[in-house]
Amino acid sequence: MGMSVIISAAAAEDAEQILKLQYLGYQPEAELYGDWAIEPLTQSLESLRTELTEQHALVARLGDEVVGTVRGHVDAEGIGRIGRLVVHPRMQRHGLGGRLLEALERRMAEDDRPVKAYRLFTGHRSLGNLRLYARQGYRQTAVEQVSSRLSFVHLEKPAATPLAATA
C-alpha cells in the first residue's frame, strides 16, 4: 500500500528533520559551486527554529518523514520572499517542488498584507531549479555576481489577481 505526500505547516518539532533535509538537499549545490560554506549548510538549529516562528514554513511528509520543505514571508512592500525549497533526492522529479511552491504562494496570499509578487533566487548553474521556476511562472529579473564562482539568478512571478466579487 502506497502513502501520499501531505503538505502542511511546519511545526517546531520538525526543526531537526528540516535541518537534516536541508543539509542533504544542498550538498549537490555546494558541490556544483565548490563551496561547502553556503548558508543552508552552516545554519544552526537555533537559527532555523527562529525562522520557523517568524516565517511561513511548510513541510511535505511521507508518513512521519519530512521529504520536502520551503519557507517564505511577505515583506513590507508586499513581496512574497521565498527561500529554502528542498526536496529529498529520492522524491525529486515527481512534482513535489512545484506543489510546495504553489502551497507557499497560497499561504502567503492569505497573509495580512496583500502580495504583489513572489521573488526567489538560485545559483546560475542550478539548471534544474531554473527549469522548475520557469514551469511555475517565474521569470528572470536580474543576475547578481556573488563571487567568481557564483552568480544568483533572481526570479519573480506576479501574484494572481483575486477574482472580483459578483453581485
Rank of each mutant, 00 (worst) to 15 (best):
R135S: 14
Q55R: 14
K157Y: 01
M91W: 13
L104C: 04
R119F: 01
V5W: 07
R81W: 00
V146A: 02
K116Y: 05
L58T: 02
S44K: 09
I18F: 04
K116C: 01
I82R: 01
H56G: 04
Q43R: 15
Y26W: 14
R49Y: 02
R99V: 02
P114G: 06
T141A: 10
R84S: 11
I38A: 01
V66T: 03
A142G: 08
T50S: 11
L21Y: 10
V87M: 07
Y33Q: 04
E16T: 15
H94Y: 08
L45K: 12
D35P: 10
Y138S: 05
E31A: 15
D35Q: 09
L85H: 01
Q140I: 11
S4R: 15
G128E: 12
T161D: 01
L85Q: 05
L100D: 04
H124I: 09
L85N: 04
G78M: 05
S148G: 11
E13K: 15
W36R: 15
T122R: 05
L96D: 03
Q17V: 08
D112P: 03
I82N: 00
L24N: 01
G80P: 06
R125M: 08
H154E: 00
R99E: 07
S148C: 06
G2T: 14
Q55G: 01
Q22G: 03
R84D: 00
Q145S: 12
Q43N: 08
L21G: 07
W36E: 06
L85V: 15
R107Y: 04
N129R: 02
A15H: 09
P28S: 10
G95D: 02
E65R: 15
A117R: 15
H73P: 01
I79H: 01
L127I: 10
H73G: 00
L104H: 02
N129C: 09
P162L: 09
G123S: 09
E31T: 14
Q27T: 12
R71T: 04
T42R: 15
T122I: 04
V67T: 10
G137E: 06
E54P: 00
E16M: 11
R81K: 12
Q17T: 07
P40S: 07
E65I: 09
E46F: 08
R90A: 12
G97C: 08
I38E: 03
G83H: 11
H56F: 11
H154C: 03
L130F: 01
A103H: 03
I38C: 08
T166M: 09
P158Y: 02
R81N: 08
R84T: 07
L150F: 03
F121S: 12
